[in-house]
Design a protein around this nucleic acid. Structure first.
Lengths: 186, 186
DNA sequence: GAAGTCATGTAAAATGTTACATGATTCA
DNA sequence: TGAATCATGTAACATTTTACATGACTTC
C-alpha cells in the first residue's frame, strides 16, 4: 500500500484537495504513514490519469484555485483490491535505536540529550493524537478504525516513553551495567 | 543515518563480511532497521571507495572467498560525526494501521485475519529478540546498548500485541461501537 | 515588515527493494 | 535429488525526500 492507496482511502470519507489531504496526513496519519506535498500531488495526478479519481477545479475569491478530487467507482474497486492483503506490513526504521545500539561509542551527556529529545517527541505525539480525537468531537464520533488507530498510537507512544524512563540508567550509569532492562516482555 | 553508517558501526565490534553483516541485521537490527544484500554490498563498496573501511580477500577451502572488511581510523571519525545528531529519527510506516483506519470498508472476517496475523508477527518478533539475547549468553554479556535496544523491541512488541487483543472488539463487533479503546495513554 | 496560511506543482537526488546471475558444499 | 547454507554482486525499478518555484492575503 502506497501513498496513492491511502489518498484513495481518504477520499472515501469525502472530496478533498491535495492541500486538504496533507492536513489529514498530519492530523491522523502522521504517526504511522507520513507524506508530504512531494508525494501527494504526484499521487493525485497519477490516480486521475488512471481514472480512479475525478477532479474539479474550484475558483475561489481572494485565494488560489482549488483542485477538488472525488473517488470514482473504478477507484473504489481498486481500493477494495488493495485492501485484501491479509499481511499488511508494519515497518520501523529507527536511527534512534541504531544510535542507542552504539551507546558505548557516545558520551553520556549526548545519550542523555538524545533520550530527552525522544521522550519529548513521544509527548508531542501523544498530544497530537489527543488533539485529533478531541477535534473530532469527543472520540465517539470517530469511525471505529480511526479510534482503533488513535488508541494504538497512544499505547505505543506511551510504552516507548515509559520504557525509556525506566531503562535510561542502563545506558547512562555505566556502573549499573548488570541491572538489565526493567520492563521485559512476558 | 543510512545503511552505510550502520555497517560502519557494526564493524566497530569486529571485522566482518557482507554476509556476516546481513546476519547481524537479521538477528539484532531486524526489528528497527532492516537491510538486505542489495543495500549491504553496495554500502560496503561505497565505504571502501571513501577509505572508511579496508577490505581483505580471504580464500577459503571448499567455500567461496570472503571479503572481510575492517573499519579504518577515518571510518571511526566519520562514524563519530554521524552519531552527534541530537534528534535521530524514529519512523513508522504501517500498511497495517492504514488498513485498520479504513476498517469500515472491510468485512469482519478479513479484519480478524489481519489482526491474527499481526499478533503472530509480534510473537515471532518477541521470540527472535529473546533468541538473540540468549544466543549472546544470558544477556549479561551484551553491551548496554544492545541490551537497551532488545528490551525496547520487546516492550513495544508486547504493547502492540496487548493493545490488539484488548481492542479488537472495537473493530470486529460493530455493536460495541461506543465502548472505545480500553488501553489509553495516561 | 515579517511570518504564517492558503494553494499548486516540478525536478533532481537519495535510498531502498526486488529480481537476476553464479556456483560449490552439505545434509536429509 | 532437492533444499539449505555459504558467498558475492549488479541492474532495473519503485518510492520518497528535498529543494525549488510562484503568488496573494492575513495577522502580529
Amino acid at each position: 500500500m502506497d501513498v496513492k492507496t491511502v489518498c484513495l482511502g481518504m477520499l472515501t470519507q469525502g472530496d478533498a484537495s491535495g492541500y486538504d489531504l496533507k492536513k489529514y496526513f498530519e492530523s491522523s496519519f502522521g504517526h504511522f504513514f507520513a507524506a508530504g506535498y512531494g508525494s501527494i500531488y504526484p499521487a493525485l495526478a497519477a490516480l486521475a490519469d488512471q481514472g480512479l479519481v475525478s477532479c474539479e477545479e474550484v475558483p475561489q475569491e481572494r485565494k488560489p484555485d482549488r483542485k477538488v478530487y472525488s473517488i470514482t467507482d473504478q477507484g473504489r474497486a481498486e481500493l477494495q483490491a488493495a485492501l485484501v492483503d491479509p499481511n499488511p506490513s508494519h515497518k520501523v526504521r529507527s536511527e534512534f535505536l541504531a544510535m542507542m545500539f552504539f551507546a558505548h561509542l557516545l558520551d553520556e551527556n549526548h545519550i542523555d540529550t538524545v533520550l530527552n529529545n525522544r521522550v519529548a517527541e513521544c509527548d508531542r505525539l501523544l498530544q497530537s493524537i489527543k488533539a485529533f480525537e478531541e477535534q473530532a468531537g469527543g472520540c465517539d464520533c470517530l469511525p471505529s478504525g480511526a479510534r482503533f488507530v488513535a488508541g494504538f498510537g497512544k499505547a505505543i507512544a506511551s510504552a516507548c516513553r515509559h520504557y525509556i524512563e525506566e531503562n535510561r540508567k542502563v545506558l547512562v550509569e555505566r556502573e549499573a551495567r548488570d541491572a538489565g532492562p526493567k520492563v521485559a516482555a512476558g
